[in-house]
């Protein structure tokens, strides 16, 4: 599968999901369960992405410069530092550790 094919399929699927929501009768919205599952789905997928982006190197689990970088990011998010500043700080932390041979 080419990168272009992946991008077009994923983009159309994402748009289709949004359109589907406007076709569903309003009564479904009143139900609590779909809303709760969708909310938790977002949380689970993002948490899994945090874990794999931090610890996975291909199919190996490794502890490297990304771990301290993520800890720095967590501390800054807790201090309500703006998103873009945190991202740059995390990248800089990892880059610095690597430059020092970590």
């Amino acid at each position: 599968m080419s990168i272009w094919a992946i991008i077009i399929i994923a983009s159309v699927a994402g748009l289709a999901v949004k359109i589907t929501g406007y076709l569903v009768p309003a009564e479904v919205m009143e139900r609590e369960r779909p809303s709760r599952v969708a909310g938790l789905l977002t949380v689970a997928l993002l948490a899994a992405l945090v874990a794999t982006q931090t610890l996975a190197d291909g199919q190996d689990v490794v502890l490297d410069a990304r771990v301290p970088a993520l800890l720095v990011a967590a501390a800054l998010f807790a201090l309500r530092v703006p998103f873009i500043v945190v991202i740059i700080a995390a990248a800089a932390t990892a880059a610095l550790i690597r430059a020092l041979g970590g």
Binding site: M1, A5, I6, I9, A10, A13, G14, V17, K18, I19, T20, G21, Y22, V24, A26, V28, M29, P34, S35, A38, G39, L41, T42, L45, L46, L49
Partner: peptide, 25 residues
């Protein structure tokens, strides 16, 4: 090679947009 998994992950993550759409309809 991870294309299908990437598409599935992105689409599942976008499923909350369907809930928003029901709310905004």
């Amino acid at each position: 090679a991870a294309g299908p998994a990437a598409i599935a992950g992105a689409t599942l993550l976008g499923s909350r947009n369907a809930i928003y759409a029901m709310r905004m309809g």
